[in-house]
């Protein structure tokens, strides 16, 4: 579904992503694990088109999207939940979700979103900025999901979120995959969360993928050693 080949990304003169390749299939969750500063956010920003890639290709469902602006990538089927959530704080919860409908014909938020995130229904008239961290994360996922993506990108969704809520998020992501059969690419540092959702794990270090294995049989100690500071 998503095929990334030899992707390179730089900030000015300094290259941060040094040629990354990976593939995700439909109905598969790929976790990209790595410590702080290893290039996860940079990778995700270039996938969604916030940062330009300096070379390489990003093919979504058979179509090259690497040179499209962000909004056209969303229209092509990418959706993005950024690190730190980045909801629109002054907009209501409902308006935040509606902003994700931009690439669709409809302007009505589907009910299934509120079945997935009941708390958002209760809070739909509140301003996004007044929600708790966990609620904002649900909001950011809802906003991404209403665009009916083929590939959902999540950058460190557990960052700064209470352990009990982290479990809920894992459950929700599995539920989304079961319902929608989409591909999910998630970056993480929390191994227990990843083990609960991922079919495949890849380890990123200094802008390169240095290790990859199947999720169920993954050697957790080995991955943990990559994540240790």
């Amino acid at each position: 579904m998503l095929e990334v080949k030899d992707l390179r990304v730089s900030y000015g003169q300094s290259e941060v992503i040094h040629g990354i390749d990976f593939v995700t299939a439909k109905d598969e969750t790929l976790a990209i694990m790595g410590r702080n500063g290893m290039g996860k956010t940079t990778l995700f920003k270039s996938l969604i088109g916030i940062l330009p890639g300096s070379s390489g290709s990003i093919v979504l469902d058979g179509r090259e999207v690497g040179n499209l602006p962000s909004h056209e990538r969303v229209a092509a089927g990418l959706a993005y939940v950024p690190q730190g959530r980045m909801i629109f704080p002054n907009l209501t919860v409902m308006e935040n979700i509606e902003s994700g409908l931009e690439t669709l014909k409809t302007s009505k938020v589907p009910d299934e979103i509120f079945d997935l995130f009941p708390v958002l229904r209760e809070m739909r008239k509140r301003k996004g900025g007044n929600l708790s961290g966990g609620q904002q994360q649900q909001l950011a996922i809802a906003r991404a999901l209403v665009s009916e993506p083929k590939v959902l990108l999540l950058d460190e969704p557990t960052e700064g979120i209470q352990p009990s809520i982290i479990k809920d998020i894992a459950h929700t992501l599995n539920e989304i995959r079961r319902m929608k059969k989409i591909a999910i690419v998630v970056s993480e540092q929390v191994l227990s969360f990843t083990m609960a959702i991922a079919d495949r794990l890849a380890v990123i270090e200094k802008g390169k993928i240095i290790h990859e294995e199947e999720g169920k049989s993954a050697n957790q100690e080995k991955i943990a050693s990559y994540l240790a500071v």
Partner: peptide, 25 residues
């Protein structure tokens, strides 16, 4: 209005508006 929503999103966060599918230009 729908236009207003786009305007307010872009005012709040241009990059993120693009990333949710808004043609900010």
């Amino acid at each position: 209005s729908r236009w207003g929503l786009r305007v307010r999103c872009t005012t709040a966060n241009r990059e993120m508006s693009g990333a949710v599918g808004i043609n900010t230009k």
